[in-house]
Simulated scan of single mutants.
Amino acid sequence: MSQSIAIVDYGMGNVRSVQKALEHVAPNDKIFLTDNADLINDADRLVFPGQGAIGACMQKLNERQLVDVIKQAADKKPFLGICLGLQLLFDHSQENGGVQGLSILAGEIVHFPKNELHSQGASFVVTEKTPTNSTLKIPHMGWNKVKQTQQHPLWHDIEDNARFYSVHSYYVKQDDESVVAGSSDYGIDFTCAVAKDNLFAVQFHPEKSQHDGLQLLKNFVNWDI
């Protein structure tokens, strides 16, 4: 039986690549981009992607009156957040002196510490060519291993420490450690995946992460909560 999967399109993020990746793993499902609250409410599943500045994203969500509908979806249906779609779930970001998020999960979004990220001792370095003890660049951009910190249906058929593609300068500092589903190392250990009930969100881009990224999207499509 086919299902409907809405991808929130509020004008920020490479939503077309997310749509194409989902169409690849779920060719019989109805997958569509929308900023219509009624269509989001009616969809069986919701994908919440995003790229760019959190402040600008929150402004666009408010302009389209999508804040409440996203909160409702995160509470009752299979929900996947991607990149900024993970960060926006939290209370607050340090960006631009402070920006309020959706407060679906408790915690803060903080900037990687400048000039303090070094590859020495890192267990998951973005590239094997990174010189030992070199200063790592911000934004964190490239392939990084993801350690699965809890079992979850969205990790099905994905090996622990599989590589995923990331582009970001900020990361999550959650209040509740029980929501952490995956972590990465970029000079410091940081949370790159969270899970709670029907919600799963990742800092990396599964739509850009080849086989393992497609597997994660396939797992989401088939996730029975």
Rank of each mutant, 00 (worst) to 15 (best):
I138T: 06
D197T: 14
D35N: 10
A53N: 03
H24A: 13
A6D: 02
G97Y: 07
N28T: 15
H152Y: 12
T132E: 13
S123W: 11
T149A: 10
V99A: 07
D91L: 07
L80H: 01
K114C: 07
V67H: 02
L199A: 11
S17G: 09
Q215S: 10
L105T: 04
N198Q: 15
T127F: 10
I188C: 13
F204Q: 04
P131D: 11
A21H: 05
K218Q: 13
H140T: 12
K137W: 11
D189T: 14
E128P: 01
Q51S: 08
S183N: 10
Q148A: 11
S178D: 05
L22T: 04
S209T: 10
G142L: 13
D212M: 05
G213K: 09
D197A: 15
N96T: 14
E23F: 14
S169R: 12
S134I: 09
G182I: 13
P78R: 03
E207F: 10
K30V: 15
Q51A: 11
Q203G: 03
K60W: 00
G85K: 02
F200T: 08
W155H: 09
L154H: 02
L66C: 05
A181D: 01
Y165Q: 00
D185C: 12
F220Y: 01
G98Q: 13
K77C: 06
F112K: 08
D35T: 07
H118W: 09
E116D: 08
D38F: 06
K30E: 14
K77G: 05
V221F: 00
I5T: 06
S123I: 12
V125K: 03
Q210V: 11
R163V: 05
H211L: 09
V172E: 01
E23T: 14
S184I: 14
W155K: 09
D157R: 08
A6P: 04
Q94F: 08
H168C: 08
D35G: 10
F112Y: 04
V18S: 00
F204M: 05
S169Y: 04
L136M: 14
H211N: 07
V126H: 05
E23C: 14
E23D: 07
R45W: 04
Y186R: 14
F32Y: 09
W155R: 08
R64W: 01
F124Q: 09
I5F: 04
V126K: 05
D68S: 14
T130P: 00
V69H: 01
T34G: 03
V125R: 06
Y10Q: 02
S119A: 15
I104P: 00
K71Q: 09
I7A: 08
G11Q: 04
L80F: 08
V179I: 13
P139K: 13
M141Y: 10
K129I: 12
M1H: 04
K114S: 12
V172N: 02
D75Y: 05
S119Y: 12
A26H: 04
N28C: 15
Q51R: 00
I54W: 02
N28W: 06
N115P: 03
P49S: 07
K20E: 06
I54K: 11
C192E: 03
G121N: 12
L105D: 02
T135V: 12
S178V: 14
K76A: 12
I5W: 02
H92G: 02
K30M: 15
A122I: 11
V69E: 05
C57F: 01
I109F: 01
Q203A: 03
I5K: 03
L214C: 03
I40M: 07
